[in-house]
Amino acid sequence: MIEIELLEKYGAVRKQYKKSEIIFEKGNLATHYYQIISGAVKMNNFNDEGREFIQGFFYANQSFGEPPLFLDRTYPANAEAIEDCELLSIPKDSFLKLIAENTAVSIKIIENLAQRLHYKSVMAAEISTQDSEHRLLQLFDYSITYFNFKKDKNGFHIDLTRQQMGDLTGLRVETVIRTIKTLEKKGELKIVNRKVYR
């Protein structure tokens, strides 16, 4: 999102995280801007019964965890590496100086936050009012654009596990599996070697 050279000019450092390593925890004060060079990160919460709710997945060239950075608040969710990652981390003061001195970067940040807010609004409406087929199709269609899923001869590969699909839509894994089979029969999806294509 922000050029690596520009971030490093303002003092960003590269950090390595192993799969399953926690980058920050819910309740910690936001002190840094994070951008992914390689790997993937999820932000999640757990309810009182210990069920995980995934706020989102983030991939190379994406940033995560910015809202509380602008609000002087604590993180509302955990950030965890879901595969080995290399991240850029820049302290809040340096990051704010960077965006104040680079208008184009400020606009990119605003667009990125607006995109996420739009996604959350769409998915909140889907989860509260729609059936499982509609929820999954909305998730897939949105994810194709937002996560830049790749297209091949079978269509767009929905690069999410069944568990991740459930966590993102509020559905049980068993419901996700059943619904995917139904959508395949209706011609909405293809399943090739257990991979889902839209």
Rank of each mutant, 00 (worst) to 15 (best):
D152K: 07
R172Y: 13
C85S: 12
L189C: 03
D48M: 11
E5Q: 12
A77N: 05
V13R: 11
A81E: 03
K190Q: 12
D167V: 00
V176N: 00
F156G: 00
N45D: 14
K15S: 09
V13N: 14
T74C: 12
M43C: 12
V176S: 01
L113G: 06
S128I: 11
G65T: 03
I127H: 00
T145W: 08
A77K: 02
K181P: 05
T103L: 12
I127V: 13
Q16T: 15
I82T: 13
I109H: 01
L139E: 01
K19C: 13
E101P: 06
E133L: 02
F57S: 00
P91F: 01
Y10E: 12
K108M: 08
Y10P: 04
N112W: 07
G166C: 09
H118E: 15
N28Y: 11
E83F: 05
T129F: 11
N28R: 12
Q55W: 08
L7D: 00
S20A: 12
G39T: 04
S89M: 14
F46M: 07
E174W: 07
M165R: 03
N28S: 15
T179G: 04
S143I: 03
I37L: 14
K108C: 03
R178A: 08
E111G: 11
L98P: 00
N44K: 09
D131K: 11
D152A: 08
D48R: 11
Y59G: 03
D72S: 14
E188Q: 14
R135M: 10
I191F: 02
H32V: 03
A30K: 04
K190F: 01
L189M: 06
L139Y: 02
Y17P: 05
F46Q: 14
L183R: 00
K195T: 06
A40P: 01
C85N: 02
Y59C: 01
P91V: 05
N45M: 13
K9G: 04
E126Q: 14
K151F: 08
I158T: 02
I99E: 02
H157A: 09
V41W: 00
H32M: 04
N193I: 03
D93F: 07
P68C: 12
A125L: 11
L96K: 14
R162T: 09
R162Q: 10
D152G: 07
I107L: 13
Y34K: 05
E188K: 14
N112C: 09
G170D: 06
D72N: 15
Y119S: 07
T182D: 10
I99S: 02
E3F: 07
E49P: 02
N154K: 02
K186H: 07
K151E: 15
I99P: 01
E25W: 07
N102P: 05
Y142K: 09
K195Y: 07
P91Y: 05
E126K: 11
E66Q: 08
N102W: 08
S106Q: 10
E86V: 15
I2Q: 01
K15H: 10
A79H: 01
I158W: 00
K15F: 04
I90K: 00
Q55Y: 09
Q138G: 09
F95Q: 01
E184T: 10
L69Q: 06
K153T: 13
K108S: 11
I37Y: 03
F70G: 02
K9A: 10
E111S: 13
R73A: 15
V173W: 00
L88N: 04
I107C: 04
F147W: 14
K19I: 15
N61D: 15
